[in-house]
Design a protein around this nucleic acid. Sequence first.
DNA 1: CTGAATGAAAT
DNA 2: ATTTCATTCAG
Length: 896
Amino acid sequence: MKGSSRNKDHSTEGEGTGKRPKRKCLQWHPLLAKKLLDFSEEEEEEEEEEDIDKVQLLGADGLEQDADETEDDESSEQRARRPMNAFLLFCKRHRSLVRQEHPRLDNRGATKILADWWAVLDPKEKQKYTDMAKEYKDAFMKANPGYKWCPATNKPVKTQTSTVTNRKKLWAFSSDSTKDLPSPRKVAKSEEMPQLNFGMADPTQMGGLSMLLLAGEHALTAQEVSSSTCQSDATNSTEACQKSSLFQFAEISSSTSQPDVPRAVKQTEESALFQFAEISSSTSHSGPSDLTKQCGTSALFQLAEMCLASEGVKVKEPGKIKVEASEDVTREIPEEMETELEKTTIKDSCKGKVEQSETGKIQDRDETKTEEPETAKCSHFTSLVMESSHFERNDSSKDYTCRSPELSMADINILGLSKPEKIKKKKKKNKLDRHSNEKSTPKKPCKKRQSSESDIESVMYTIEAVAKGDWGAERLAEIPRKKARPASNVKGSLLDTKSPKKKVKSKEKKTSKEKPMETTKESKPPDFLSVTASKEVPCEASDNIKVEPLTPTEEVVPQSLPGQVKTEDNDCVKKIETCGSRKSERSCKGALYKTLVSEGMLTSLRANVDRGKRSSGKGNSSDHEGCWNEENWAFSQSGTSGNKKLKRPKPKEEFVLGLAKLEEEFEKKFNSLPQYSPITFDRKSSSVPRKKRKVGSGSSEQPKSNKGSFQSQKKNLFHKIVSKYKHKKEKLNVPDTAILSEDKNSSEPAWKNKISIAALNTPEPAMMHEPLVGSQKRKARKTKITHLVRTADGRVSPAGGTLEEKPKELPQSTLQKTSSAETDCNSECTRSAESEETHSITPDMPAVSAFFSLAALAEVAAMENVHRSQRATPLPHDGQPNEMSQAPVLISCADQ
DNA sequence: CTGAATGAAAT
DNA sequence: ATTTCATTCAG
C-alpha cells in the first residue's frame, strides 16, 4: 500500500515540486518535516510521505486553481462523478426493493439480485433506463464539456479530489439523504473555488473562517444529525455543548483579551474569533519566540480561570474542577507541549481552531473536566476543528510559540496546506478526504449527512478519547453528578461510541433515506419509539428522532420536543437554548454567525440557507421510500456560465434554483422510471429460467478453466455460494407474496402491470449469445465458475480446490441429504428449484444433480432436517475421493 | 476499503 | 481487450 501510494506521491511530488516554487509550501515544508519527525515513528519514511503529501496538496491546490481558472470546473474542483449508467440507475431505483425483500441480504447480494433482475428485465423496460442513462450522460456532458471518464491516471486528481472535495458530483441523485446533496454541492464548489482563487491571503482567513464555518455548520448539522436516536441525543447535546463551548471560548477569549486588549467586547461577534487570534497574539507578545510555556501557561491559566468562572456559573461545583484543571494545564504545558498538542489536536483538537492551540487546549480541558457535557462540546468543537487540527499541529511544529497574529496568519495559510496531514491521518481515503473537505468547506450541504456523520464520528472519537484520557475519565467520574450524569446517561451510548457512531451514521442515512425500518432496526431496537416514528416518515423522521435524543439531556429537553424544526435556525436556537447555561448563547451564536458571515463565511450561511430552503421547500417531498426527489443534478454549470460563477459570490439562490429545477426534472425522470416489483422478476426468472446468467451456467459453455487465478475463482465461488445461500434462505423464509409489502414503498403501482407485461414479453431468443457485453470478464468469471461447478457435478474432472470449499459451506445436513437421498431429493429439488429461480440450469443435464440449485439444496436440507434430524452423519467436509462421487451433486448445487 | 453487478468511456 | 469508475452499504 504505502509503496504504491508513495510512488504515487512521488510522481505527484514531481509535479508538485515543479509548482512548488510558487507556493509557500516550501517554507513550511521543512518545518513540517521536523514536526513530522517528532510525530512519526518512522521518521524518514513518514517524513517523506508527508512531504510528498504536502507537496501533493500543494500541487493539487495549484492544479486546482489552475484548473479552475483554465477550465471549467470539474477537473479543477472536484471531479464530477460520472453519470450513472442504466444499470446503476436501475440499481438505485430497485435496491431498496431488493433490500426490503431480503433484509438480511447485504448490498452485494442485493446487487446480484439486481443484476439478475436486470438480466431478465424486459428489453423495453431496460431501454427506458438506458435512455434515461443516456439522457443523464448527455446532460452531464453538456454540463461538463471535457469530462473524462477516466482521469488521466497519474494526475493528482486523487490528491486534488481528496484535497478538495471529491464528492461534489455535479449530479448526484442521492436517494438517501435527499436534498442535501444537490444544491450544496454547487455551493460548496463555489465556496471552494473562491478559496482557491483567493490564494495566499484568503487561505489564511479561510482557515480561520473555515473553522468557524465548520463550527457553525456543525451546529447546524448537529441539529440535523441529532435526528438519529439516542446517539443523536448525545450528538445534540454535544453539538449544543459544542456551541456553548465555542461561545464560551469566544467569551473567554474576549474576556481574556480585555485585559490586554481593550477592544474586546464580550459579545461582539467579531471579537470572538478574532479575539482568539488577538489573545493568542497578545499572549505571544509576552514572549514571542519561546513563549511557549509562558504564553501557554499564562494563557492557559487565564483561560482556565475564565473557564472556571464561566463554568462556575454553569456548574455548581467548580472547585474540584478548578484545581484539576489548573494542574492539568500546568503539567501538560510544560512537559509535552508538542506531543500533547498533537495529541490534543488530534483527539481533542478543540483547541485548535482558533489559532491558539494553547488556549483552546486549556479550555477544552477545562471544559471537559468541568463537565461532561462540556466534554461533549469539546469533542464537538474538536470535531469542528478536526480538520483544522493540522492547524494546530503546524503551530506546534512551529515551536509552539505564540506567534504574533501575523505569524498565526502565516500558519493559517499553512493550514490550508495542512490538508495533507489531515489526509494522512485519514489515511488518504478518498471518501474521507471528501468528507473532510466538505467539512472544511462549506460545501457540506450537499452531503450534509456525510459531514454530519463525519462530525459525529469525530465527536465520538473525541469523546472516547476524552473518556479514555486521563483527565477526561477522571473528570467524568468525579463530576458525574448532575450534568455528567445526564450526559453520561444520554451518552452512555456516546461513550460506547463506536457502535453508536456507526449506528448514528446508518441512522442518519437511513432516516434520510427511505428505509426507516431497517435503519431503525440497525440503529437499535433498544432505543425507542423514535424508530417507529422514523418509519412513518423517513425524511422527517430524523427530526423526530432528534427530538428524542434531546430528551435525555437534562436541560436540553424542553425545546426540542416541538418537533422538527424546519429551519436550521430554529434548531440552532433550540440547541443553544438547550445548552442554556449561557444566557448569551443565542446572542453569541448570532454574533458568531454574523461574524462568520461578515468574514466571508458566506459559505456557512449559504449552506444554512440551502438547508433551510431544502427543508422548507422540497424537503420532504420525497418522503416515501424513494426520496428520489432528492436527486439533484448539481449541474451547476448547466445554466449559465457555470463554474466561473462559482468563484464566489454568486448567489446561491440562482444555483439553488437552477439546480433545484434541474433536480426536479431529474427526479421526475428518475421517478418516472418504472420500478418493478420483485415478484415480477421472480416470475420472470422462474418462467424464463435460462436467461443470461443462468443460461450461461446452464448451457454447456466451453469452460475456460485457465483464466484467472484459481483462487480468485474459488473465492468468488465461495462468496457466491454463500450469498446465494443466504439469499435463498431468505427467500425460503419469505414467500413471494411477501413481496407485497414492498409495494407500499414503491408507491408506484405501475410495476405490476409492467411486470406482467415484461414477463410476457421477455423474449429469450438470444440466450446463447450471452453478450459479452460490458465486461466479458465478469461474465467469464461467472461462466467459469459455473463451468467449474458444472464440471464438478458433471462427471467431468472437477477442480479439487473448488470442491473443497463448497463442501465447507454446505451444511452437513445437506450433505447428508444429498448423499442419502438423492433420488428422493430429486423430485423435491427439482420442484423447489423450479419455484426458485435458480433452477435455471440447463435442462440438458440429465443428471438430477445438475439441476439442484443451492437454494433447492438448502430447502431440501431444511426440510429433511426437520423430518430427519437424527441422521447426523457428520461427514467431514473434506471431500474425500470416495465421497466425491456423492459430492458431485452437492457441488453442482453449490454452484448454482 | 472491499466487493457485487453492469456499462460507458478511455487507454 | 482491459481498466476506471459510477451507486450502495454491510463486512
